[in-house]
């Protein structure tokens, strides 16, 4: 087996404020190979964004990470600033939801990309870096790249800006791309184009992609494997097929049931169907008790009883469908009932 591009072992992230330290992410492990996409799915408080930032070592003030993060063979948590600067951009790059805040309003698009090139390799001349920028804009499908390099972020539409940000992130061919809700702010037609572009570039460069998303639709069209987070912990991990067709965690099944689908197979014959909602609201690890964080919202917790409230379940191996690979779920129930009464 080749070395994974990303390996995370027992990652914990905690925040300290007013002398109090609290975990927001606990005991997270994952492994991601080149050319594969792992989707990290979660809602508010799940810790999905902070996990992405921990991998980049871009944690906000007051936050600290423990455990082990290896990106392209480099230990990220013990790396010094110089090593980190080298890693960011070359080994791992990031694309955010809001492209406007990822770009400086004072620099033209070309300057952003050229800067990334020269930070990575100072021996590249300005002129050559500028030429790389034009090439890269062309590669991400921006029409008239020679003219586009001179444009400023505000002159681009949201979709074009996101393409420019992708060009900036990928110009040094990182081994890992972390995409944090890369299409959430975009219209669906543009979203589909950006997802297709990311897939295409991933195949071309053989890079690994960590796709952080709240949207099962996006996940379904982009991911190979899925990690579902709830309140800072791993709820379920598995191949896309296992997560979608054989979920083993009540939260995963509940999220699927709460997601509206356009699917023609769901034709209702004029009858109005309702989504099955999960009662209550998502919580964070800080507000969770000693037991399973999902237990207060779980329709199956009663079947298990006391244990859900007092003991946090650890991820255990679950059955996989054909060619499914590793399937883990952190639930005291061995298997979900066939017709899931997931929500109370």
């Amino acid at each position: 087996m080749p070395d994974p591009v990303l390996q995370v072992e027992d990652l914990c992230v905690s925040f300290t404020s007013g002398g109090v330290t609290a975990d927001v992410v606990r005991d997270l492990s994952m492994r991601l190979d080149g050319g594969r996409t792992l989707a990290v799915v979660g809602e508010s408080g799940s810790g999905k964004t902070i996990t992405g930032r921990a991998i980049m070592r871009l944690l906000p003030r007051g936050a600290s990470a423990r455990g082990r993060i290896v990106v392209a063979g480099r230990e990220m948590l013990s790396a010094d600033e110089r090593e980190l600067r080298r890693a960011r951009g070359s080994d791992v790059a990031m694309v955010f939801q809001d492209s406007m805040s990822a770009l400086s309003p004072y620099l033209d698009i070309g300057a952003h990309i050229a800067q990334a090139v020269r930070l990575h390799d100072p021996s590249v001349t300005r002129r050559a870096a500028r030429a790389r920028a034009v090439e890269m804009l062309d590669r991400v499908g921006i029409p008239g790249p020679a003219d586009a390099v001179r444009r400023f972020p505000h002159e681009f539409s949201g979709g074009m800006r996101q393409r420019a940000v992708i060009a900036m992130a990928l110009v040094n061919r990182p081994a890992l791309l972390i995409a944090d809700e890369p299409t959430t702010a975009l219209d669906v037609t543009v979203q589909a184009q950006i997802l297709a572009l990311l897939r295409e570039l991933q195949q071309e460069y053989g890079m690994a992609m960590l796709l952080i998303s709240h949207d099962f639709g996006v996940v379904g069209s982009a991911a190979d494997d899925v990690l579902v987070l709830y309140a800072g912990r791993q709820a379920e991990y598995g191949s896309l097929r296992d997560i979608f067709d054989h979920p083993a965690h009540p939260y995963t099944a509940g999220l699927r049931a709460a997601t509206p689908r356009l699917d023609a197979r769901l034709d209702t014959g004029g009858e109005r169907t309702r989504l099955r909602a999960i009662p209550g609201a998502p919580t964070s690890l800080r507000d969770a008790g000693p037991g399973c964080a999902f237990a207060p919202r779980c329709g199956l917790a009663d079947q298990v009883g006391e244990r859900c409230v007092v003991e946090a379940p650890l991820p255990t191996v679950r059955p996989t469908s054909e060619g499914g690979g590793l399937h883990l779920a952190a639930c005291h129930l061995d298997r979900l009932p066939a017709t899931q009464e997931v929500a109370r």
């Binding site: 099962f216 509940g254 999220l255 309702r274 909602a277 999960i278 609201a281």
Partner: peptide, 14 residues
């Protein structure tokens, strides 16, 4: 709204 909560509000409106 979060996905799990969105369905609650949609059902309420319905």
């Amino acid at each position: 709204l979060d996905v799990s909560v969105r369905a609650q509000i949609l059902n309420l409106l319905a």
